[in-house]
Design a protein around this nucleic acid. Sequence first.
DNA 1: TAAGATTGATTCCTCAATCTTC
DNA 2: GAAGATTGAGGAATCAATCTTA
Lengths: 153, 153
Amino acid sequence: VDIEPLETAPADALTAWRALLLAHSAALRAVAEEVRLRGRVSLSWYDVLLELDSAKEGLRMRDLADRVVLSRTRVSRLVDELVRAGLARKTPDPADGRVFHASITAEGRAALRETAPVYRAATERHFGAHLDEQDQAVLTRTLLKVAKAHGRA
Amino acid sequence: VDIEPLETAPADALTAWRALLLAHSAALRAVAEEVRLRGRVSLSWYDVLLELDSAKEGLRMRDLADRVVLSRTRVSRLVDELVRAGLARKTPDPADGRVFHASITAEGRAALRETAPVYRAATERHFGAHLDEQDQAVLTRTLLKVAKAHGRA
DNA sequence: TAAGATTGATTCCTCAATCTTC
DNA sequence: GAAGATTGAGGAATCAATCTTA
């Protein structure tokens, strides 16, 4: 983190930031709780499985960690849990002995299919339902600007 | 039938939700790191002190937990840490023996004054700087709708 | 019985150190 | 030495159980 001189922030930035923290906390708790109750896998597992499924070829652990909002360490442990549960597999890269590729199993896809509607419904109920289409479009556009500025997304 | 410009973001709730998760994660990490490096207290301590300062009368532990985005348990432990550090005090309610009131000390106010500019600058640098004024206004409006729907804010 | 607050055990998550391979 | 991945240790956050008082 580079240190620069202090600048006076527009009062609006702090207000928007506070709103982001509140909305995130409230909605995420509700979504995670609903997925936990009604889904087949936890939200963390779901996130990982979703990325594995969208990348058909198998993902290096490193790349997987970049796509999920978690540390490399955490992802390593989550994948191990998924492997133990039979929902994912880990295969060594034949060309580079340092690398492992994680991929989703048929059972993992089944779990994903089973949990996806729960996740969609929870997200809709606890987040989307409170916003109209234009709100959602503006949120996506503005929040992705922030994420991209940090090298995510 | 009107044609939308290509750069218009998809307006579905899942996309906006994903953008929220990414932006929140990236910006919060950066803000917390900067506050940790340059501020006098951690972000958690800062949040609690801020609430204690804004409620001059002292807050019941219960009410404090409601205002901070943390569990009652966590707040209880944070306040104990602050008391040990001399930045807050805890006084029993004379009328109701179950209740404790947490309040900020002069030293706590000093720590708050010292950390506030760091927090403002970090929030501006890692969040506000990537948004124009209208973006910020819209974010505040929409995200507060979500928070309020969950009984926060 | 119920509400406010804390404690103990547990899970979640990350950092630093390590191991292996390039 | 540097990069990919894992392990050990510890902090952060929560849940369930408990204690106290209303």
